[in-house]
Structures are given as structure tokens and as C-alpha cells.
Design a protein around this nucleic acid. Structure first.
Lengths: 230, 230
DNA sequence: CCAAAAGTGTTTAAATTACACCCATGG
DNA sequence: CCATGGGTGTAATTTAAACACTTTTGG
């Protein structure tokens, strides 16, 4: 046990990010094309070994920023994966994070050893190296659960959105259908979103009203015992 | 980045377990008295550095088994903590787990460098070293959430239990009160527990019926879309 | 017969479900 | 004027909440 404490300080830790976006009625995930070993020339989750002189949370943000240019993003720790043989270079534990972004608002720019960065529809993800597929599955499950109990869906939509958009987002993620009238009734009754008075433009049908999410409201409601549920 | 890959393989990883039990209407947590540096002679969560030749999940079980004698326990990963300065010996990431046990069924035996192991009521926990207090708070929150959405409360009760016992367990953890009739109605309507025909004995009042939890039933119900909620 | 906890049913209010038609715009 | 998606209300059912007294046992 105590005998060889040095032997225990030989692990590395990495961060792997599962970044979700929503576009054209599809849930998408951000992958990078690896330009470095191991698994050079593969699509993979944006992840990297972290340096040991900064806090874990900070590292998670840095890794993402460094590989994709994304900064100041909603991120949440998911789970830590630690199979002995998961990395060919040695013992590497990886802490997985998930992030939600408004695809339209960010230009993703690959940098460092990420040669490309691209959005893949969640059902058209190529084979992934390491245990990245397992991580992705874990993240999808978490997203499904989380989106029903916390108002995080709005992180995936543009600032102004229609009720139809948010409904199809929920339908895409949860893989179900909702009744339009009941869905709207319930969502609006929570008072988390408001009609901005704006409308869609240049659509070949009746233009939809544009709503926005009121961030502050959720915190207020939570304090009086409200719990989000869809 | 790539320059100094060796410098990244100098971290250690530990596991810290938050083991909950329920006894005498109190939620309790298992602590050990540390007989080794750092923080020798302190009460702390049962945790230890892990050796790098086994999988993470396996290590979690081993650490607990090794320090407390507990084996074959319901365990779940909670979160990974990685502040730079959280451990005086170097960069140590800790993966926290939580476990639920039937206090009555296990004799906790301190071993290895754990000099003692004892149950503390959740509101009478002494000062804890490292970031163990933060971990404990995190675990408590998770327990509160989880117990409402998954039938894990039964892990804390003896095999045969009364309806009053399970109600007070829920009340202790969630820090609320439930109406007896409504609580029973709802719980029984889920068909997850059954009357065993047995009764309490030698109590100075009307003896309560003893129920047991049907493990299989939950899996069956989940498949037809049932979701536990209390 | 007293104390202590177990056990049980009904009424009211709230939330959820099911369901079908008219509206506004661009082409 | 046609095609396309946007927008709305009501009735029926289910679920949750409120609430008080009787039963069984040991001492």
C-alpha cells in the first residue's frame, strides 16, 4: 500500500468534451479531425491531456477553447472514465464534459492539432477512437434526462426562437412527439419565455412569433419551489 | 502542447467514497479515522490513492473494501474533483463515489491504515480534511435528487421494513413531511413492494406489517415507460 | 384502560390528455 | 387561390392534495 507511493503518481488526466448543437431540426455533435497521435487522422471528440498546473474545470474550458475556438460556453461534468487500457500512451483517466451551444452564434475554428472541426448529426457519427463512443452514449442519455428537468434546451436555440423550434428540439432529443397545443400550454405556463413582439420574416407561410428565454426567471422560480418538467 | 508529454504523466488519482446508511430515523455517513499522512488523526471519507493497474470502477470497490471491509455494495460515481492544491503530496484528482448500505447487515471493520470506522449522523459530521466537505455536500444533493426518481431508498432499509420506516427515511433525506395516507397510497400503487404477511414483534403498540422490495419489478416497469417519482 | 403507533377512504382541486379547425403569408 | 406551417379552446380523465378517526398491541 504505502510502499510505493511514487508509482501512483504516473497517471495522466484528459478532458473529453461532448458539444451538442441543434440545427435544421437535427441534434448535432462537434467532432475534430485528429492531426496528432494516437489515432491520428480520425474524427474524435475534442479532448486532450491536461497540464497539471491548473484546476480541472479550468482545463476543461481550455481544452475546448484550444481545439475549437469555443469560449464561454455552458459546460457540465458528466463522468470519469478509467479503463486501464483506454489510452495507448499509458494510464489516462478522462473526465468527460458536456456543452450546449447555439450553433449559429459561433464559428468553430479548429486549431492546435485539430485539423478540422465539424458538426455531425447525432445519428451519423463515424467510428470514434478510444472509448469516445461510450462517452458519447453516456452524454446522450444525460442530455435526455437533463433536458426534461432543467431549462437547458434554450442553450441550443438562437436568442429569438419560435415555439415550433423548441418543440422540435425536444422531439429530436427525446425521440417522441408532443401535441402542439398541450406542449405550448405547458411551456408558456412556466413563465420562462416571453413573446418579444417580433416575427419571423420571409417565410412562405404565416410568420411565427419570436420568443426569448428569461434567464433570471428560473432562479427566482426555483427559490419558491418550482421545478421544471417537460 | 506536445512538447512535454512526460510532464503530464505525473498525476495521481484517488477514490473517495460517501457511504450512506439509515438507522434510528437518522441518515448517517461512514467515516474513517486516518492513521496515515496526510491528515493523520482526522476523521475523513474512506478514500485512498489507487494503483494504476486496475480499472477505475474496480479500484473504487477495492478502496472501500480495503478500508472498511464492505464488499458487494451499491455504488455510483458522483463527480471528479480536481483543484490544483487539494492534496499536499502533489496533483491528485479524486473520483467520488456514493454507496448506500443496510447498516444492520454489515459489520464495518476498519483495516489497512484506517484506525477506526464509524457512522456519523449527517448533521453531526466533524471537520473533514481535503475537500471532503465539499464532496459530502455534493453527495447529499445527489442523494436528494436521486431518491425521488429512482427506487434506491430500499438499499438503505433492512430486507423487511414497515411503511412507516420508508416514510421516515424519505422524510429524513428530503427534509420534508409527507401525509401518511397519500404517501402509502402512492408507494403501494407502484407495485414495487409487497406485503410479506409478516409483522413486527414485541412492540408496545399495534404491530406493523412488514413489506419487501421486489427488485425485478422495477426493471419490468421501466420497459413499459414507468418512471419512479415520489 | 392507557399509551403509542398502525392503518384506512372520501371529497376537492389541479394537471394532463385528447382532439379539429381557422389564420397569415409568399408564390 | 393554393400550399405551408402558425396558432388556438374545451371537455374528459387522471392524478394529487387535504383531512380525522378507529385498530391493535404491550404494559
Amino acid at each position: 500500500m504505502e510502499a510505493n507511493i511514487e508509482s501512483k503518481f504516473k497517471a495522466a488526466v484528459s478532458v473529453d468534451n461532448v458539444v451538442f448543437g441543434f440545427d435544421n431540426n437535427d441534434l448535432k455533435v462537434l467532432l475534430i479531425y485528429r492531426g496528432a497521435e494516437p489515432y491520428k487522422d480520425c474524427w474524435a471528440l475534442p479532448g486532450d491531456l491536461i497540464s497539471l498546473d491548473q484546476d480541472l474545470e479550468q482545463s476543461a474550458e481550455n481544452v475546448l477553447q484550444n481545439l475549437t475556438g469555443l469560449d464561454n460556453i455552458y459546460m457540465d461534468q458528466i463522468h470519469t472514465f478509467g479503463r486501464v487500457d483506454r489510452h495507448p500512451f499509458g494510464r489516462v483517466f478522462t473526465v468527460a464534459y458536456f456543452a450546449l451551444i447555439k450553433i449559429q452564434d459561433y464559428m468553430v475554428k479548429p486549431s492546435s492539432w485539430a485539423e478540422e472541426a465539424a458538426w455531425f448529426p447525432i445519428n451519423e457519427v463515424p467510428e470514434l477512437p478510444f472509448d469516445h463512443m461510450e462517452i458519447l452514449e453516456y452524454a446522450k442519455d444525460l442530455l435526455k434526462n437533463k433536458i426534461r428537468h432543467q431549462p437547458i434546451g434554450f442553450e441550443l436555440l438562437p436568442k429569438y426562437f419560435t415555439l415550433t423550434e423548441i418543440q422540435s428540439l425536444y422531439e429530436a432529443i427525446l425521440e417522441t412527439q408532443f401535441d402542439t397545443r398541450n406542449f405550448r400550454k405547458k411551456l408558456l405556463s412556466m413563465n420562462l419565455i416571453v413573446d418579444t413582439g417580433r416575427q419571423q420574416k420571409e417565410v412562405a407561410h404565416r410568420p411565427a412569433k419570436l420568443y426569448k428565454y428569461i434567464t433570471k426567471r428560473y432562479a427566482q422560480l426555483q427559490q419558491i419551489g418550482f421545478s421544471f418538467d417537460l
